[in-house]
Design a protein around this nucleic acid. Structure first.
Lengths: 133, 133
DNA sequence: TTAACATATGAATAGATGTACATATGTTTA
DNA sequence: TAAACATATGTACATCTATTCATATGTTAA
């Protein structure tokens, strides 16, 4: 790995932080490699957004419930001992992220997992936390 | 699926919300099945926590950078055009979640992915957002 | 139609979170 | 030793988020 002490940073024009560019030691090969392969900001934003939706205990519990069966809002609220409104708000986030879908049956609305990715993402997360115990 | 209109809820003693219990239509078989298989709250909390760490654009970018190579804090700050302090704070969260590890080499600290789960979780998330396009 | 019910949603609020600034810690070099 | 540097961390603050309350929407049954 090149270790270049670089007081005259050749990427200075692209860099908002002049102080940093004038003082920092760069590994330019590593930087160039990473820069070349960086996905679009939009993709990385969407990716973070999906995980953000997984990143809440209430929503994780809802997803868990839906692994067993489709389920109506009322049953989820009962099982999680939470306000119906709170559940509905969280279901909207899950719906927008296409992690769950809904079907109406009379007065009730039944939710189920939208696709198998949900279970796969869930399981990979579980594998991680279980390994580190 | 049983659909029991149940004004005298038999789980009323366990239920904090009396109004809900007196009015709601339950699917008791679904509820009992889900209740029996529910993991510990602690596991579900830890799981949400892991995804919460993935659920930020800056941290997602950092993880992406580490797929290519190990990398020092300075290079990450340069590449992401961000404050060194901001990167360090995020690295601490990633370290605490055991998603990255660090090694010191002189004045610099190099970060790398802690295990393969990180890449797998990342890829599953990517598969989800790419499929829905 | 009206009443009762299940769900959705807007507004408000308390708490969580990401970043910047200042500064501390740890390492190397002079 | 002191100075320079890379990183870590405490604090403050602006923004975001989860929940609650009140209420709207949509469905069924009387």
């Amino acid at each position: 790995m090149d270790n270049i002490n670089n007081p005259h940073c050749d990427r200075q024009s692209e860099c908002g932080n002049i102080e940093l560019c004038e003082s920092c030691v760069y590994h330019t090969d590593v930087i160039e490699h990473a820069k070349g392969n960086m996905p679009d900001d939009e993709v990385l934003y969407d990716l973070a957004e999906i995980f953000r939706v997984f990143g809440d205990t209430t929503r994780i519990k809802i997803l868990w419930l839906l692994f067993s069966d489709e389920m109506c809002v009322c049953d989820m609220a009962e099982l999680l001992n939470m306000n119906q409104s709170a559940i509905s708000h969280q279901l909207r986030l899950l719906r927008n992220a296409r992690l769950v879908r809904s079907r109406r049956d009379g007065k009730q609305v039944f939710y189920s997992l939208d696709d198998e990715h949900v279970r796969e993402i869930f399981d990979k997360g579980l594998a991680h936390i279980q390994e580190r115990r």
